[in-house]
């Protein structure tokens, strides 16, 4: 399978850099999968799991919160405002994230921002359930 260059960068560090088969992105307007040779696209991300497949049938999940993805001929670059690999996730961290999202929800009255926060909370709750916490 053709591979492409993928980079996952958070403000604090580079989380992943290398050749991969496929990446599933939690894009704002619906999840999308990026494969090699994808046409150039730029999209914002919502809260959710990003799945990196470097060998078939072997996915690695990373929880990202906000950010954007840039697909061009050089590959895919994801700039996540916050990124937590599955291995590093604990119940405490998730609860903390949910609390922050809820605070965002409380802090705003704008419908768009409220909706974004609501979907973030839902996504985080889902993540929590998926990881059996």
């Amino acid at each position: 399978m053709a591979t492409f260059n993928f980079e996952l960068v958070s403000p604090e560090r580079v989380l992943f850099s290398g050749e991969v088969d496929a990446v599933v992105l939690p894009a704002t307007e619906g999840d999308m999968t990026v494969l090699a040779g994808h046409s150039p696209v730029m999209t914002t991300l919502k809260t959710g799991f990003l799945v990196v497949t470097s060998t078939p049938g072997n996915g690695r999940r990373v929880l990202v919160r906000g950010g954007f993805a840039d697909v061009n001929q050089n590959g895919l670059t994801v700039l996540a405002e916050r990124a937590l690999p599955e291995e590093e996730l604990t119940q405490d961290i998730l609860d903390q994230e949910i609390l922050t999202a809820e605070m965002h929800w409380d802090a705003t009255n704008e419908p768009a921002a409220r909706q974004a926060a609501e979907s973030a909370i839902a996504q985080l709750r889902e993540a929590k359930a998926a990881l059996n916490f």
Binding site: P11, P40, V41, T43, T44
Partner: peptide, 28 residues
């Protein structure tokens, strides 16, 4: 960029979310 980008959501909206974030990154 020679390639034509597709924007999702549209350029203006991406730019409005990107610019404040850029500010944060510069300060950070």
């Amino acid at each position: 960029p020679d390639a034509v980008y597709e924007y999702e959501p549209d350029e203006g909206e991406i730019l409005t979310t990107l610019l404040p974030r850029n500010l944060t990154v510069q300060i950070f």
